[in-house]
Amino acid sequence: MSRKIKSISIYLVRVVTLLIAVSVICFALVSLSPIDPMLAYIQANPGVSEENIARMEEFWGVNDPPAERYLKWGSALLHGDFGVSKIFRRPVIEIIGTRFAATLALMLAAWIFSGVFGFAIGCLMGMFNGRPLDSVVKRICLIMCSVPTFWIGLVFLIVFSVWLGWFPFGMSVPVGVAPENVTILQRLRHLILPALTLSFLSFANVALHTREKLVEVLHSDYVLFAKARGESNLSVLRRHGLRNILIPAVTMQFSSFSELFGGSVIAENIFSYPGLGAAASAAGLQSDIPLLLGITLFSVVFVFAGNAIANALYVLIDPRTTEGGK
């Protein structure tokens, strides 16, 4: 029990130090960047008087030393104040909240899709290791791995939305329908293409990784012995194969959160899907610093959580780590 508390506290310390480090780096990068929030403010409000500008400068601490500004920003963050987004003119925290819900649906769909199908295809390849089926599928996966996400997104859009007309062009809901009237089915239809695009790359990765692991297991001594005990190929897969590749597969799924997040920026932009990824790139392009920093910090927590879950699961599922040895 105390061991658990200890490892949890270690995780907490880690995430806090990570957040501090990331916030310092981001803050420094923004300070060094040519973006001038004051200038942006003036351009957005052409009629402001000199006097007002001076007051704003005073209020924003433009002339304070960077360390002081950082501390001010940091303490505001600690109080839950992430500032107000310039583009959306709403509190950053609120935007992250609503946008993340949309992104989460997208990522979850992609994540489950690539996890389940990638795993299944990987098992198939592993079972047929070296035979034509395996080499063909393996080649397809390798090609999939090297196709850029934005490109496949565009292809999907052209083929399935433009030519075939099976799916909508983008957005997360139909245009001109009040949010409360949108059906689940409509939401799902809007979700499918971006989710497929997002899962495209990790799908191939998962499949190849699963294949590799399964081949390794099937060449192990214990599988040889299982065969010597009269188990058929299918029974070997079911009793020993799956058991031994599931743990690495699951942990890998959870540690793929960072790629998922990165991919969502691209997929959401292509499909104009109003998620966090699209907001992040908009914030970056339009110098919306509070939003950009807020999303960055949020993504750190998100990715960290995935990795922490991966580690925790490993410890929980693998008997070699839970039950003490002799």
Partner: peptide, 28 residues
């Protein structure tokens, strides 16, 4: 031999490496 192995013909392997590390030994 596919029918006989594990029945009339049995192998006793060298080491613990020959047991599935994630399966309880009784079931193996």
């Amino acid at each position: 031999v596919a029918k006989l192995r594990g029945g009339e013909i049995a192998l006793v392997p060298q080491s613990v490496e020959y047991l599935d590390p994630l399966m309880k030994v009784g079931r193996q």
